[in-house]
């Protein structure tokens, strides 16, 4: 046999080579399409690049970042991002968990509910935004306005009033993504061991005690995971708001994503837009790390 004559090439070394050969193409692609652009982004954020006034382009140091401190629109967008992310995530988890707990009690018809829940998830956010802007929230002829009129609550300009617009875009996001929390939590609930509940019943735990002392702790990993994933989606939300309000009225729904986009591609100020994008990336990554750290700590 030739094996003995061959220089000592162990199975582990062979496995290593095979693994690297399989992994390398994907890593190279990710390096080229995510990491290299990030470096480039960092560079452009240090430049003045204004497509409306190209003759002013050039290295600007940290000017773009310095400008943010005194930019009320930036601080407004940060605040809106926090409000938007926190409220949508909390709403999704509470609504999703409540509905999952309810549905678990229903002996039949869970399948129909699951199909219904899939529907919002598979829709394109931009189409969802358009739908809500026209058919659901439009004054006079939208579904919501027709309902409030029928209930005698009067007609409102749901996307035209700054405060109502913010509530509306939060509602849109919650509508589209609560099914995700619902489906995941429903599936997790179904995997909880029934004998634990039987034991708890024998130990005379009430329904509420069973929920607090058994369901919640057993479900916590899934809830934490849902919170993390939902936070990531909320932090990169763009298309639905863009389609529904475009960030307006004024800057009432202009979360950081929209501000960075509008600065770059509506006002064509790519340099300042880049620095906003860098801040956005830093915030998103920081929050992700924090959340994963929290999960591991527990």
């Amino acid at each position: 046999m030739t094996a003995a004559a061959r220089p000592a090439r162990s199975l582990a070394a062979q496995e290593r080579r095979f693994a690297l050969a399989l992994l390398a193409p994907a890593l190279v692609v990710l390096l080229l399409t995510t990491t290299a652009p990030l470096v480039y982004l960092a560079w452009t954020s240090l430049n003045r690049i204004d497509l409306a006034m190209p003759w002013l382009s050039g290295f600007a140091g940290v000017d773009n970042y310095a400008k943010m401190g005194s930019d009320p629109r930036f601080w407004n967008s940060l605040l809106l991002t926090a409000v938007y992310t926190a409220s949508t995530v909390v709403l999704q988890v509470i609504l999703g968990l409540s509905l999952a707990l309810l549905v678990l009690q229903i002996p039949r018809g869970q399948g129909a509910l699951r199909i219904a829940a899939i529907l919002p998830i598979v829709l394109a956010p931009v189409v969802v935004g358009l739908f809500w802007r026209t058919l659901v929230l439009a004054p006079d002829f939208g579904l919501v306005d027709m309902t409030t009129r029928a209930l005698g609550l009067g007609s409102h300009n749901w996307l035209g009033d700054p405060q109502l617009a913010l509530i509306s875009v939060i509602a849109i996001h919650t509508w589209q993504w609560t099914p995700f929390a619902f489906l995941v939590l429903l599936a997790s609930l179904a995997t909880l061991p029934p004998d634990v509940y039987e034991a708890a019943r024998l130990d005379r735990a009430s329904a509420w005690q069973r929920f607090v002392h058994i369901t919640l702790p057993l479900l916590r990993p899934a809830i934490v995971m849902v919170v993390i994933l939902r936070t990531m989606t909320a932090l990169s939300a763009f298309a639905a708001i863009f389609a529904a309000t475009g960030g307006g009225p004024g800057s009432a729904t202009e979360i950081l994503n929209l501000y960075a986009y509008r600065t770059s591609f509506t006002e064509l100020n790519l340099g300042y837009g880049s620095s906003l994008a860098v801040v956005l990336l830093a915030i998103t990554l920081a929050i992700s790390f924090l959340m994963f750290r929290l999960r591991r700590a527990r």
Binding site: A3, A4, S10
Partner: peptide
Amino acid sequence: GEEVTHAEPGER
């Protein structure tokens, strides 16, 4: 009698 210390599983 042959050394197979570093032979792969399929070669043995």
